[in-house]
Design a protein around this nucleic acid. Sequence first.
DNA 1: CCCTTAGGAACATCCACGAC
DNA 2: GTCGTGGATGTTCCTAAGGG
Length: 306
Amino acid sequence: MSKPSSRPEPRISRVGRASAQEHAGRELIEPRELVDAPFMPGQSPSLGARRALLLMVTTAAAEGFSDKVYRLSKRELRQGHESNDRIGALVDEVISIRFQIPGLSSRGRAAIIKAHLFEEITEETDEGNSAWIEFEFSHRARVLFGASEVYAVLNRTAVLAFDGKYAITLYQLGCLYSGRRDPTIRLTVPELRTRLGVPEGRYSDWAQIRRFVLGSAKEEVDHLAHFQLSIREHREGRKVVAVTLGFWRKDDPSIDAAVDELDRSKVGRKARRTGTVKQAETRAANIYKELTDSLPGLDVDKIPEL
DNA sequence: CCCTTAGGAACATCCACGAC
DNA sequence: GTCGTGGATGTTCCTAAGGG
């Protein structure tokens, strides 16, 4: 890694521990194994819990997930909110997070490993700014994440800027995949649901997932991240059975625009985002008009969609 | 700590497409 | 044609999150 610049560097680091220390402060890091781990069935942590988890993981990653008690001040954890009134609920949520990964049993057979992320979380009852929470990762988490060689590097400001829990999770995936030669990942719809932590029974049909999960998350990610999200649907008949997500690195001016947006106030961000969308729609409408005006015989409906 | 509000979630309706 | 399935879109209600 060279000197820090105003623009984010490529998001992959192969030197986990050193990198964690180097990036401490402006960036958050997360071991690949955790980014890639699907949520357990029924688990769908809130936006606040997902952010808190990242802060906690970064803290431990800086020390290679060694066996010790880590701590964060409540002030850091509450993420700008001027009171500690929701820290208790946040801790409840975070400590219940579990993960599952493929692995081996003690006699070497293929197995699914399910484990708690945290051994223990201690919350000081003091309400002042100096109060902290202490946390220990579970043995399984330490062994797995401590051995990780690939870390996703996330922009701390971006993580704190996202408004949607699915956006933040897609951003994590994107930070891991966007630096790869093939920055795409194909997931069946059920896989997509567990990856993003969509609760079972919610968003029963694809239209709802696209609208409330992918659609709104894509808007946010495209606006704030250093990569652009593409979504390709795969159908069997009319039914959408799988999607290919692509995390394409933006060109430099677009990355600068995203970084600039992170520097601006959160207030009005959505308006700026939808404003951009409106401009794009106007442009698309103009192109459409030019096309149909200049080629009167053209049947636009016969042109396949890109 | 409390108030406000954006947006999440549920529900309803309509539309498109394919099988028959 | 009609029937069933799946997708698109609009409406309403409520809650979580942000801000004073």
